[in-house]
C-alpha cells in the first residue's frame, strides 16, 4: 500500500515534470510554429536567474515563481524583437537562428557564471509515508504543473486576450483586417512562451546541478512531448505528457532508469508512426 502510493506520486511527478518542461515550447512551437532550439537554454537561464536571486537574499519561491519567469520572458522579448520576428513562417531559418542563439546563451552563461556546477537546495523537506521517505518537493512540482495547465486553459479559453492570440495564430491576416496588430500579439505570445520556459527551469533548479549546458538535457524530451501532442495546445500537452510519463516511469520501476528513457523514445516512435499528426490529431479533435 505504502509502496503503491509512493510509486503513484513518482508517476504523477514524471508526468508533471514533462508538462512543465514542454509548456513553454508548446506555446512557442505549438502555437507560433517557431522551432525554438534554444528552449533548453531558456530553461537553463531560468535556473540561473533563480540561483542568482536567491544569492541576493530573495525568498526562493519569489525567485522561482516571479523573478525567473520575468527575467527569461524579457530575454525572450529582446530575442523576438531582434531575431525571431524577421523569421516568422520560415521554419528552417528559425531553426538555424535559434540553434545559434542557444550557443550564444551557453557561451554567455559560461562567461558570467563559469563552468562549474551550481545549485540551491530544495526549500521543502522530505517526509515519511509509511515505511518510505517521499521528496516533498515532488508535490510542489505536481501542484505547479496543475496550476499551470489550469491557468493556461483559463487564459486561452476565458479571456479576450487568449481569444485574440488564438485567432492571430490561426489567421494572422484576418486578425489584422479586424484591427489587431499581429506583430504585437506575436511578441506577447513569445514573451509568455519564454516566461514559461524560465519558470520550468527555475522550478526544476533545486533538483539538479546546474551547468551552462544543462539545457541540452531537456530539449529532446520537450520536442517529443509537444510534437506527439499534436495540434491542440493543452489537450495535446497533457495527453502526451501523461502517456510518456506513464510509459517511462513504468519501465523505470520495473527495470531501470535507462530502460525508462529508452521506453519513452520507443513510445514516441510508435506513437508518431501510428498517429503522424499527434495524439490530438486523432483524439480530442477540436479541443483547445
Amino acid at each position: 500500500m505504502d509502496l503503491s502510493f509512493v510509486i503513484f506520486v513518482e508517476v504523477l511527478y514524471g508526468v508533471a515534470s514533462l508538462v512543465l518542461i514542454s509548456a513553454g515550447l508548446a506555446v512557442v512551437f505549438g502555437m507560433m510554429k517557431v522551432i525554438n532550439l534554444a528552449h533548453g537554454e531558456f530553461m537553463m537561464m531560468g535556473g540561473y536567474a533563480t540561483i542568482t536571486a536567491v544569492g541576493y537574499g530573495v525568498n526562493v519561491f519569489v525567485a522561482m515563481l516571479i523573478i525567473a519567469p520575468l527575467v527569461v520572458g524579457l530575454i525572450g522579448l529582446v530575442v523576438e524583437r531582434l531575431v525571431i520576428r524577421h523569421l516568422y513562417g520560415r521554419l528552417i531559418d528559425t531553426m538555424l537562428a535559434t540553434w545559434g542563439l542557444s550557443l550564444v546563451f551557453i557561451g554567455l552563461a559560461t562567461m558570467i557564471f563559469g563552468n562549474t556546477t551550481t545549485g540551491i537546495s530544495t526549500p521543502i523537506p522530505g517526509f515519511a509515508f509509511g515505511g518510505y521517505q517521499v521528496n516533498g518537493y515532488n508535490f510542489f512540482i505536481i501542484i505547479v504543473s496543475i496550476l499551470l495547465v489550469i491557468t493556461m486553459y483559463a487564459i486561452l479559453r476565458g479571456t479576450r486576450a487568449g481569444l485574440i492570440a488564438r485567432g492571430t495564430m490561426q489567421h494572422s491576416d484576418m486578425a489584422s483586417a479586424l484591427g489587431y496588430s499581429s506583430d504585437r500579439i506575436y511578441m506577447m505570445t513569445f514573451f509568455c512562451g519564454s516566461a514559461l520556459s524560465g519558470l520550468a527551469g527555475a522550478v526544476l533548479a533545486p533538483l539538479v546541478g546546474l551547468v551552462p549546458t544543462s539545457g541540452g538535457a531537456y530539449i529532446a524530451k520537450a520536442f517529443i512531448t509537444v510534437i506527439a501532442g499534436g495540434p491542440s495546445l493543452i489537450a495535446g500537452l497533457v495527453s502526451s505528457a501523461t502517456s510518456f510519463g506513464l510509459v517511462s516511469q513504468f519501465f523505470t520501476f520495473t527495470i531501470s532508469p535507462v530502460i525508462g528513457e529508452v521506453a519513452l523514445l520507443i513510445a514516441a516512435v510508435i506513437l508518431l508512426r501510428t498517429m503522424p499528426k499527434g495524439i490530438t490529431g486523432r483524439f480530442f479533435k477540436g479541443k483547445l
Binding site: L3, V208, A217
Partner: peptide
C-alpha cells in the same frame, strides 16, 4: 546525462 533520481530513491 541522467538528472532525475526520484524513482531510484524509491
Amino acid at each position: 546525462d541522467v538528472a532525475d533520481f526520484g524513482s531510484t530513491i524509491t
